[in-house]
Amino acid sequence: MTTSPITGFSLAKAPLNSTFTIINVPTDPVVAHRMMTLGWRPGAQVRVMKKASGGAKIIDLNGSRVAVSGALARTLCVEAVA
């Protein structure tokens, strides 16, 4: 299915309501730890539910809803599910 040569893109650009595979973790270790506690880890799947007023992204991680600021979402990479 994957015909595009570009595999990874930022979470901020991910279309709504599709599932993607997580590639990286935030560079800041404190933020990374918090994200990982909420279930964010490379290889796991994520779905962007909604863009909230104020720019934050509401994502679905293992069935839980997590809000991530727009700025942080731009640093997070995902790819199409293999």
């Binding site: 918090r34 994200m35 909420l38 934050a56 997590v66 809000a67 991530v68």
Partner: peptide
């Protein structure tokens, strides 16, 4: 550091 927003939204 201004911590970026990462917050769990409980049902």
């Amino acid at each position: 550091a201004s911590e970026p927003l990462v917050i769990d939204l409980p049902p």
